[in-house]
């Protein structure tokens, strides 16, 4: 079974700053479960000028009671692949969990573009797919849990980005 999620939101900050904040977003007070984040690969395509990055993120998991029998190690590794095209001002990021995939696989794609109505703002389109291959009637429950958890996390991730963006704005104001 698969569940889909789609959402569009915006930041009242310029695209440049939002993409910069994306790199700076850990640590932040809304992501205390993120204990490590590494750049595995990064290169600029010589032809297109697109920056492509692969990062590995370690999250210390918090499991519901029924999940403790399914998962021995609650740590989750996340792979995050991204492309930044400065010419078209588009950043696309794709994340998915590397372990616990049989219990649940969450794939998220985010697209950051200049807001169509205000060039000083940024629009973020989020699409996610949540898949569980568990049997014995657990699938629906796991996916329902997954979508709720995913939405909780999206709110936290947004708050984290907003926090970093505010800090960047303050720093810029100080430097001016």
């Amino acid at each position: 079974m698969v569940k889909f999620y789609q959402h569009t939101s915006s930041f009242e900050h310029a695209w440049d700053n939002v993409t910069y904040a994306f790199w700076l977003r850990y640590p932040n007070p809304f992501a205390s479960h993120v204990v490590g984040c590494d750049v595995v690969d990064r290169q600029v395509d010589p032809v297109t000028g697109v920056l492509r990055t692969t990062r590995l993120i370690l999250k210390q998991g918090v499991l519901p009671r029924w999940g403790r029998g399914l998962i021995k190690n609650p740590d989750a590794y996340i792979i995050e692949e991204s492309e930044v095209d400065p010419r078209t001002q588009t950043m696309v990021t794709r994340t998915k969990n590397l372990n616990h995939v049989r219990v649940m696989q969450v794939e998220e794609t985010q697209t950051f573009t200049v807001h169509p109505e205000n060039p000083k703002w940024t629009q973020v389109k989020t699409e996610a797919r949540i898949i569980s291959e568990l049997k014995w009637g657990l699938t629906g429950r796991v996916e329902a849990f997954g979508i709720n958890k995913f939405m909780d996390n999206s709110v936290k991730a947004r708050k984290g980005m907003a926090h970093i963006l505010e800090r960047l704005r303050q720093n810029a104001a100080l430097a001016a």
């Binding site: 690969d41 290169q43 492309e83 794709r94 372990n99």
Partner: peptide, 30 residues
């Protein structure tokens, strides 16, 4: 190996990025 397996799928199949297929090799092309 976990990471290598996960990176086998091209995350950006529609991308214009020409070095996509060699992205796993190293940072040489940078």
């Amino acid at each position: 190996t976990l990471l290598a397996d996960a990176r086998k799928d091209n995350p950006f199949p529609n991308s214009a990025s020409s070095s996509a297929s060699s992205a796993g090799s190293s940072s040489e092309s940078s």
